[in-house]
């Protein structure tokens, strides 16, 4: 009897003997209005559905995404234009002192390069003659379209960027994008005035590569970290730390011999690649208008044809 009375007393004072479990309803409870509760529940379900549809490349979701990006992008550029101008001015002012020394160093470099240019011109002519003699079938010439990086995602969730080269400028699905030093990524979305580039470091990126000297093939896959991983290496691979990695051109999506990076570390059957791209200062990019990529984008539009 005493126990029952004590339990009642405890309950009437609002104490609980056991810890309440955390339920979805208790999370929703503090949301004041009923429509907030409904929107919260519907919102979570809708978001999960959206993720699945986006991942499943549902056409309508892609179209919504492209049109929303087209609408939002000019707004973001307008908002940040004054801040960018000020920061650029400050940076240029800072660099003014170093300009004189840099100019002297460049003069020396130009003299050296002029000497090398004469030798290179001879080699190019010799190469051309040899190709003619052996009826060599070369890869198609690649046109270059230069643009700027508009947005650059800095989180670990996704590694992509929007660039100012769109369909109007000749951008197509699957075209490779380069910095001045190496491969940045591949175009995965094209709108009229911009494109989205999937970086080589993204978890969804997989590129066929070879080592420049030994021509050992592998697949370079991103994992959202700074260092993409080389997978499916040959068991008798001759790869070594410091070897240069270039695109193999297998599959026809990318032109061969685009520089990507160096091998930073080898762990048994896989290796880490250090990219040549300076991600921190990536501003100007070059889109390679490769003919094979163009053919592929047409195929992707009409896969049943």
């Amino acid at each position: 009897m005493a126990l029952i009375r004590l339990t009642r007393e405890v309950r009437s004072k609002g104490y609980s003997m056991a810890r309440k479990p955390v339920l979805f309803s208790s999370l929703v409870k503090p949301l004041k209005s009923w429509w907030q509760k409904i929107f919260f529940s519907v919102g979570i379900v809708a978001c999960i559905l959206f993720i699945m549809m986006d991942r499943g490349e549902v056409r309508y979701v892609k179209e919504i995404r492209l049109s929303l990006t087209d609408a939002i992008l000019p707004l973001t550029q307008t908002i940040f234009q004054p801040i960018k101008s000020i920061s650029n001015f400050v940076e240029e002012f800072k660099n003014l002192n170093e300009a004189r020394e840099a100019a002297r160093a460049l003069e020396v470099q130009v003299r050296d390069l002029q000497g090398e240019l004469i030798a290179t011109q001879g080699l190019i002519a010799q190469n051309k003659r040899l190709k003619e003699q052996t009826n060599f079938v070369d890869f198609p010439d690649t046109k270059i379209i230069t643009g700027r990086v508009v947005t650059h995602s800095g989180g670990p969730f996704v590694k992509s960027m929007l660039i100012s080269v769109g369909q109007e400028n000749g951008a197509r699905l699957g075209q490779p994008v380069m910095s001045e030093f190496g491969l940045v990524g591949i175009i995965v979305e094209v709108a009229s005035s911009f494109s989205r580039v999937l970086q080589i470091t993204d978890i969804n990126s997989q590129i066929p590569v070879v080592t420049e000297n030994t021509r050992d093939p592998a697949i370079m896959a991103g994992d959202n970290s700074r260092f993409p991983i080389l997978k499916f290496m040959l068991s008798d691979s001759l790869m070594a730390v410091g070897d240069r990695i270039v695109t193999s051109g297998h599959g026809g999506l990318l032109p061969p011999d685009i520089p990507i990076g160096h091998i930073a570390e080898i762990n048994g059957s896989s290796a880490l690649v250090s990219s040549l791209v300076d991600w921190d200062r990536l501003d100007y990019i070059r889109v390679l208008d490769y003919r094979f990529a163009d053919d592929l984008s047409q195929y992707l539009k009409n896969p049943l044809d």
């Binding site: 409870k29 978001c47 986006d54 919504i64 939002i72 973001t76 969730f157 989205r196």
Partner: peptide, 26 residues
């Protein structure tokens, strides 16, 4: 909007925002 700017799957960031919102409200 954040998903569009970063290139994440649509609906990814709202889930994170709603999680934080629900727990902090709770």
């Amino acid at each position: 909007i954040s998903d569009i700017l970063t290139g994440a799957s649509l609906g990814f960031t709202p889930i994170l925002f709603l999680t934080v919102f629900a727990i902090s409200s709770w």
